[in-house]
């Protein structure tokens, strides 16, 4: 089973992102679970969202997981040590930041020795979508790093999932996804 944990602030779209990824993967015949953990707090509070992807039905309804991927879509949460909780030696971290890797790791010491990829998902979403909603660019970065499905297939599914939105929003999101796919490093 592939397990993914998102770190976000409420309102940045981690729940929507996790559900979109689950939807994309279900279309390839996989079984999925997408859920989130938050309390009664409102916009801006740190929260986590989760994806589980497997070849057989997913029965585990506990919230606990040991993630294969940790996706951090808020630049300030990169500095919180909680992002490495319950991770494995080979867990891959994809974090949003405007900093380069050396500068980031010199401050975020908990990420030293980990497999870390960086994408400036906030900047990309602001420039391409017009709002700091870093969830879809993170998906683009995740597809590049994980190679979980062919990028063209991903684009077809995500365009369909976004089809309820106005054309301008769909196009902005697709540009953001493609740019993140190219820029993650």
């Amino acid at each position: 089973m592939l397990q993914i944990r998102w770190h976000s602030r409420a309102g940045q779209g981690a729940v929507t992102g996790a559900k979109a990824l689950a939807d994309v993967m279900a279309r390839t015949g996989k079984y999925v679970q997408a859920y989130s953990v938050y309390g009664a707090e409102k916009r801006g509070a740190p929260m986590t969202a989760y994806d589980k992807i497997d070849d057989k039905p997913i029965l585990d309804h506990s919230k606990w997981m040991q993630p294969d991927y940790v996706l951090v879509i808020d630049p300030s949460l990169v500095f919180q040590e909680e992002i490495v909780d319950n991770t494995k030696d080979d867990t891959i971290f994809i974090v949003t930041s405007h900093m380069d890797k050396d500068d980031l790791l010199s401050i975020a010491k908990h990420l030293q020795g980990k497999k870390v990829y960086i994408i400036d998902a906030i900047k990309i979403s602001q420039e391409e979508i017009g709002r700091a909603i870093p969830n879809t660019p993170m998906l683009g970065a995740f597809i590049k790093v994980s190679n979980i499905i062919p990028f063209e297939d991903f684009l077809v599914s995500i365009e369909d999932i976004l089809s309820k939105f106005p054309k301008k929003i769909i196009e902005g999101n697709l540009r953001a996804i493609k740019r993140a796919y190219e820029e993650v490093k």
Binding site: V32, Q33, A34, Y35, H61
Partner: peptide
């Protein structure tokens, strides 16, 4: 159905 564990958990 269990709150959040089922109500807010997307599955196939």
């Amino acid at each position: 159905q269990d709150g959040f564990l089922v109500s807010h958990t997307a599955q196939v």
